[in-house]
Every structure is written in C-alpha cells, then in structure tokens.
Design a protein around this nucleic acid. Structure first.
Lengths: 225, 225
DNA sequence: CGGGGGCTTGAGGCCACTCAACGATAGTGG
DNA sequence: CCACTATCGTTGAGTGGCCTCAAGCCCCCG
C-alpha cells in the first residue's frame, strides 16, 4: 500500500471543487492519495471518523454486519463518489475496497473548520448528505417491497447509469446479493432469467460484463411511484 | 381542519430552539399550527416542498408507493419530530396523519434564507438530515437482513424508546407491516409469539397498548454489529 | 495438474405470503 | 334497543418464492 501527498495543483483543485471550496480564501485541506488492495478495509464501523474519502479509481462497498455475520451493503461508492461523511464522531459503516482502489483522503476536522466560515462548502456537505439520504430512501423501498427480479433489474439500471462506460461490474454476485437483500444464488438465477428473456447479455471475466439489450424490459421491472 | 397563527412567544421560541435559531438576530419565521384528521395527507410525493413540519401532537407516516400499490413506510414521525426537510424542490415521500395530528409549519424558504447567514441553524439542518440518514441506514439492515421476529422486536424497542410514556402504538398492524417489509398477518403472528414467549403483553383498544415484560428477550432478537 | 474462487444450476425445505374465516369493537340508523 | 356494517386484529390452511445444500463448470494460478 503506497501513500503519496498530492502536490500538483490540478488534482487538488479538481477534488476541492467537488466540495465547492471557494478559491484562495481557505486554508489548504490536507489531501493524500491512498491505494487499497482489493478486499482491504478502509475504515471500520464505529471507528473514529478522521477522514473523508473520494474514489479516484476502483470501487468501495459500505456495509453493516449483524453479530451472526449477516451483511447488508448500504451503498457502493464508484469513481468520483465521496464517502465517510458523518456528523457524529464515528463511522456508521465498514468500508472495503471491492477491487484495487485509489482514494483521495481529507482530514474531516479541516472540512468542519472550513465549513464554519465557508457557506458554500457547508451547503455542499448538506447536499452530499441529502443525496445519500435519498439513495437510502429509495433502497428501503427496494429492500422492503420488491421481489428478486425487480431488485436485480433496479440494480442493473443503477449501475448502468453510474458506471457510464462499458458496464463491467466491479462487485461479485455475493456483493450484489448483500446489497439487494438476497442470496448470491437468487441473484444468479435472476440474471439468468433476464438473459433468457433477452433483456441483457453476460460476458467477460466472471460474467461481469453486462450489456443491456432491452431497456424497456428492465424499466418495466423497475416500478416507481 | 382549523388554522391558527401562533402568536404567543413561548410556542415560537420552543420550536425555533429545536432548529437552533439564535435569538433576536433573525427575521421571524412564518409559523402556523395546523390540524390534520386521521388518515389525511399532509404532503404528497414529488409535490413542491413549501413547508417544513414539526409534530406537536399525534403521529405521521412517510411512505413511498410502487405503481401497483405496494407501500414502504420509511419512517414514523412522533411528537417533536421534524420532517419535510429536503434539499431539492420536491418531497420524496407522501406524509399522512396516522391519527388526529397537530403540526407546526414553517416556510422552507425562510429557513433557507436564514441558514445562509446563521451558521447554527445551518448546522442543525445538517444534523437533522444526518439523523434521518442514520435511521434509514439502520432500517436498510432491518429490511434486507432480519427475519420477521427480529423486525418486530426491533420495532418495539424503537417505539418504546421514542414514545417514552405509556406505549400505546398510534399505528395499525398494516402500518407496522409496511414499515417492516412484512404483511399484517405476519406482524400479528410475530406479536402473538412474543406474547406467548412472555416478552410483551397486549391490551387496550385494538390491542395497541403494548408493555414490554422481558426486555432481554427483545434485545436478544435485536442483533447488532 | 491440482486447487481454489467465482458462477450457475438443480433439488428440497422453510419462512413469509395469500386466502379465508372468525371475533371484537365502534358507529349508524331504524 | 337491536340489527347492520365497517374496521381492525387474530388464527388456520395451503401455496410459493427465496433460501439451503450440493454438484458441477470455468478460469486462473501455483
């Protein structure tokens, strides 16, 4: 695992802009780049939240565990996503690298201090939190009220939108299952049914290259309001 | 349904304090009291969010619907709770009065304007959003990974904590079911099993007075991290 | 070539759902 | 006062969707 302090201006400005830091007037946020091997932990649940992270490369899963090992993944963080934000002192999820992943790190304290005087940053922190909340609200509907085919269809449409180019899923069937509240076998069966129905095609390494052939069919399964 | 503008200082100060408005320096937030009959809609999903609400008396359910009528209640708002906060222009839930309910209303615009200059208010808005997010995160774990008995046990402990005095549930079995991702029959069966196990007792109107007799038993079912 | 990890597929079982009957309570109107 | 109805909750019987367990395939890698 290697560590490097970002010194080139371009990288820093890019990230800071995502948080809406206004130029110049702010002290410099401590910003590091950090690489995580596939499967390693980024932060644990209930650990002190010292850093806020942004995905530069790779993908992250954030999850909670029950004491007997059942796992619920609350969200996947993909390139560009910011996570680790919290008002309290501790993280509420465990975060792990799904694949080899590079993150930008910021000191949480710095953000807190700056947001006291920088209204733009403060509003962007609220905006990020609201976006997480909205995702969680939609996901509650999925977990509580959709059947397995609908869950997988919704998942594929979400990934299609967020991965943008060439949909190669970074996560395993087990990860998908723990995100959707299913077992990996049920996910696999749902994907097979969608493939046989002509909605998608599966290819590549561990059948993780997925192409959407019939979007209407998936949308029909992604019932909304 | 009656409407009355709050004019007495005590009520106003009480509510504003919940949001952390600092005294004096702020323009007065338009604040009304509004009564809703049991079952009536407070605001609809995707409607413009003009107001923010605080429960003075009663209880509120906030839910999403699928097009075929399946319903997922994301949260119950009880006395003191603030809801209707959103960054976007529209509400993301439909909110209905579970029982006859009285709310305080505030103009959302006013809060937005004030929070531009009032750091304390801004931070409290973030804090409220974070609390909602935390609840949603915990609820995802429940919906995705707990069985019916665990769900009902968790629900009872939540209500016990939040209702404080004399636990008379305001909501029906159907509401509970739509909150927990179950059917009303399954909720009823789970309650019966908990009663037979000596964990709770049921009494009152529609068997909505629930007393916790054996907290350990419920806690054992409320597995965590 | 053996082993391991990830995925699929099949067989069988179980938990929650569906459908239905029934009791209790409150409100309504004759 | 009593039917009548509507609402809410409980309980039983049977079904079905998802889980469990197991086998087998593929691919990569030592």
């Amino acid at each position: 695992m290697f560590v490097r302090t970002i010194t080139d201006r371009a990288s820093r400005r890019n990230t800071l802009n995502d948080l809406g830091l206004t130029s110049g007037s702010n002290p410099i946020v401590c910003l590091n780049e950090f690489a995580y091997k596939r499967g390693t932990e980024i932060h644990g649940e209930n650990e002190p939240a010292d850093y806020v992270y942004q995905v530069k490369k790779g993908a992250v899963r954030s999850y909670k565990l029950l004491s007997d090992g059942r796992r619920q993944i609350g969200a996947f963080q993909l390139v560009g996503d910011i996570f680790g934000l919290t008002n309290g002192e501790n993280h509420r999820f465990t975060a792990e690298a799904v694949v080899d992943t590079t993150l930008w790190l910021m000191k949480r304290r710095s953000l807190e201090v700056i947001s006291q005087t920088d209204g733009v940053l403060a509003r962007n922190l609220l905006s990020l939190t609201t976006r997480s909340l909205q995702h969680a609200e939609d996901h509650m509907l999925l977990l509580g009220r959709k059947d397995s085919l609908e869950k997988v269809a919704t998942f594929l449409l979400e990934m299609d939108k967020r991965l943008a180019d060439a949909m190669t899923l970074p996560m395993s069937r087990r990860d998908i299952a723990d995100y959707l509240g299913l077992t990996l076998e049920t996910v696999s069966r749902a994907l097979s049914r969608l493939r046989q129905a002509g909605a998608i095609s599966l290819a590549g390494d561990a059948l993780r290259e997925i192409t959407i052939l019939d979007r209407k069919l998936l949308l029909a399964l992604n019932l909304q309001g």
